[in-house]
Design a protein around this nucleic acid. Structure first.
Lengths: 237, 237
DNA sequence: TTGTGTGAATCGATTCACAGCC
DNA sequence: GGCTGTGAATCGATTCACACAA
């Protein structure tokens, strides 16, 4: 609750000076949400042989405005060259580091239904420091299956076998999701990606992101309905 | 630009008066994004037998603040009763109508890999006006499979067989997603849910929402790294 | 007394527009 | 001349705080 305390006065041009330690770069949440897209686009550019890129170009590829891109990147530091652009591979390195992708993030997937299997098979998962180390499900008819080379275990066994789990992905039905989350949290998991259609309740120190198909569809339906209404009104003036 | 003009603008309480037509209710995007969660919670309350609910309670279930919930609902109209709360079933009806869930939204899923099959099997899909009418994939080894009672067809055939498709869900690999999107748009699809790891380029009249596992994980990693850094600094002051 | 509805204040994110550097 | 970096302006979303209806 105590939110808006940080004035952090003065410090107008200290910015680029890179102070020894406490370099309080506060990257806004909205910016963090776009960094993966930039990284993705930069990786493609790099593979295509580009060594430099201008904000206009990178912005258009990722679907944002160039001013926004430049402001986003400015939160990471001053890596562009005026009149020239950005060095592709340097930018890749900076964003990779900013997002913490140089570290190792062991992942457990809980719930080996269709969605869990799809995620386990998803190649992009293994990229960038994310490493699936455990697949769990308490359904006896599923325990023992081998998915993508990993055995499916009961959650208790998976936890016992993996001291450190950084990220838990929950793909169980909604009515089990909360107790799964509780057990993950108790085991020390502090990051949860929740595919179940329920708002999880977790302690403050745990970060949950939710992906909900049903929500996405409903948002699409809202906008579709608005379009239809606008079109219907069109002829009536 | 002239900001401070509206001192004596009158029209303070006209608001509730519900003018004949042009009742410009502009529901903010952020609010639209929360309505599905409210609807979900209300449905559960209703099934549990509640007839009324206060903003405090509904807010706490859905994980928002009560002031926010009240403001969100106020965009839909004045449905609460001061000192009492909201009527659960009335609110369900209002939100359902606002989101366009009283209409029929035929859905096509393109890409019958693991993710496509998971989505086809996902129960919540069939809820609330969303109706899967076609499953498409151009891989000959998949065409002809029957998934959840529906045959998998080539995209061209699926389109030919379904005049009206409201929503297209793309779960193909990234390198095919753009051309799939183009074909859907050409066929008249104006809402796309994109699971492929690429930013689709579509005309202005088409609405795309993207769900990207890799992005979600990277955002979690960013916050996890920040937590770790904070913890490391803890002892050092 | 209770709990909604909502202006006003605050907070955050985006866009503008241009100085500064290559 | 071209493109970044960034204050300032704008736009949008959240929270506060309280008048008011039941």
């Amino acid at each position: 609750m105590p939110r808006g305390l940080h004035l952090l006065a003065s410090s107008r041009r200290d910015r680029c000076r890179l102070l020894p330690q406490s370099n309080k770069r506060v990257v806004p949440g909205a910016t963090v949400g776009r960094l993966p897209a930039y990284l993705q686009a930069l990786t493609e550019l790099s593979e295509a042989g580009s060594r430099r890129v201008a904000s206009d170009e990178l912005a258009s590829v990722t679907g944002v405005r160039s001013a926004q891109l430049r402001k986003d990147l400015s939160y990471l530091g001053t890596y562009g060259v005026r009149g020239v652009g950005y060095d592709v591979s340097q930018l890749i390195d900076e964003i990779t580091a900013e997002l913490g992708l140089t570290q190792d993030w062991p992942v457990i997937i809980v719930g080996m239904g269709n969605m869990g299997r799809a995620l386990a098979a998803y190649g992009g998962f293994g990229q960038r420091g994310f490493r699936i180390v455990a697949l769990a499900d308490d359904d006896p008819s599923i325990v023992g299956d081998v998915v993508q080379g990993l055995p499916v275990c009961r959650l208790a066994d998976s936890l016992a076998a993996n001291e450190r789990l950084a990220i838990g992905v929950i793909t169980t039905p909604a009515d089990q999701a909360q107790q799964i989350a509780d057990r993950l949290v108790e085991h020390g998991v502090q990051s949860i990606l929740n595919f179940a259609a329920i708002a999880l309740r977790v302690p403050d120190n745990v970060d949950v992101r939710r992906v909900d198909l049903s929500t996405e569809l409903q948002i699409l339906a809202f906008h579709a309905q608005r379009r239809d209404m606008a079109k219907g009104r069109e002829g009536v003036g």
